[in-house]
Design a protein around this nucleic acid. Structure first.
Lengths: 225, 225
DNA sequence: CGGGGGTTTGAGGTATCTCAACTCTAGTGG
DNA sequence: CCACTAGAGTTGAGATACCTCAAACCCCCG
């Protein structure tokens, strides 16, 4: 297991705001964890008491609706922090985290990091900034869900994944999701999601290979109504 | 214009985490502002450069969707802070704030408060906590919008306003909104909102007097499907 | 007493959901 | 290597929720 001080991944999250000393202390108490695809990392109601730093892989943060369906609230990839909220509150988690791929991460116990959170204003400020970004994104989602039709939401979801998480050498989206996951991101029934995806395919906007999806005409996707 | 040190309102927001000295400095540079009902406080794209502390009145934070409709993201009442995000980012506002009633507030320029934000960890931490609450609420809204039918969202909106902002002596909701505002909270067409409200009325769940609304059967509202 | 804005109601069309049947695929054990 | 199966994916059809447009209504204010 590597050391936090020399871990590249931290450059993408708030941990970079810690001093070398603080990082060494963090490094000393962190635990490496691996999660298989589909594995639940934590659930709504769980007490987390720490943050996960994602070294590799992808996971989804979902919230269970009263109708029994999961809604994807956010996707997290390499470099992301999981469980930020637990640093600030003692409440149990309001979200469920599930691995979408094989995942490698470090768990940093809250107790160890809390003192630094108090003392190092740069760290707190960085967490605060990330939080405002999350909030802004989240508010954007509210408007989308409330005002845009499912087809447009799906188009935007595809573009979001394409732009935010990239493609492999063949141009396929690096994040591979089930149709159910797509439905759960867009907030619709699985069958609706399927119908829309196959419509996009028929229109040449995307192509597929197994569960993998390639975006063929990003520009046209932008203008889907 | 009163002094921040002795202002009761601050007890409800992050300013209470400031020291007496800091509060006096804030007090020296704040400006009192009044806004008439309907008046726009700031718009999407505006640079705010400060926070508003609401002394009295109610306002809505909205975001314009591509379909031209406003979506209400949050309501803010006495004690709330407006423009928290501007403290952390230099980006322009992503929301529009509009007074729903006569409003009285204090404007605190960012420049003055920023130094304290850096130095006083309690203040930053409190802002951080408020932000996580906002985020949690916001994520809850995403699920609601994506998964619940309009009727249920309306029922929850009424209960939210009832529980969160109270009623006057006759039992009517203290916050009086137009049907359009209700539609914009729930994320639906004005006519749909109207139809649902009159259905609730017919079923005895609420009663109305002009634009004012009284909740007659909160328990039944909770179980609306 | 005549607007004008907010509100209410009607009717028709569209989007979306649900249920159900069917296909495809990957994995399992013989 | 071949069934066999469980799960995911796909498609169809009917029911429902929701949107839009348009007309009527209702107050309040000048």
């Amino acid at each position: 297991m590597g050391k936090c001080e020399s871990c590249i991944v931290k450059e993408f999250n708030s941990l970079k705001a810690l001093t070398r000393d603080e990082l060494m202390r963090v490094s000393a108490c962190k635990t490496g964890k691996t999660f298989n695809k589909g594995r639940v990392i934590f659930e709504e109601g769980d007490t987390i008491n720490g943050v996960y730093c994602v070294k590799d892989g992808v996971c989804k943060l979902t919230k269970l609706s009263e109708n029994g369906k999961d809604q994807v609230v956010k996707l997290i990839v390499k470099g992301g922090l999981l469980g930020k909220r637990s640093l600030v509150t003692n409440e149990s988690s309001s979200l469920t985290a599930t691995a979408l791929t094989e995942m490698e991460m470090c768990f940093i116990p809250k107790a160890e990091i809390l003192a630094d959170l108090q003392k190092n204003p740069n760290f707190t400020l960085d967490v605060l900034q990330k939080m405002t970004e999350d909030l802004k994104e989240s508010e954007h989602s509210i408007v989308n869900m409330a005002q845009k039709p499912v087809k447009k939401r799906m188009a935007e979801a595809l573009l979001y994944i394409h732009d935010g998480f990239g493609t492999d050498e063949d141009g396929y989206l690096t994040i591979v999701l089930s149709r159910e996951d797509y439905a759960s991101i867009v907030g619709t029934a699985t069958e609706s999601a399927i119908r829309i995806l196959s419509q996009f395919k028929k229109e040449g906007l995307i192509s597929t290979s197994g569960k993998r999806i390639k975006i063929e005409d990003a520009n046209a996707l932008k203008w889907v109504e």
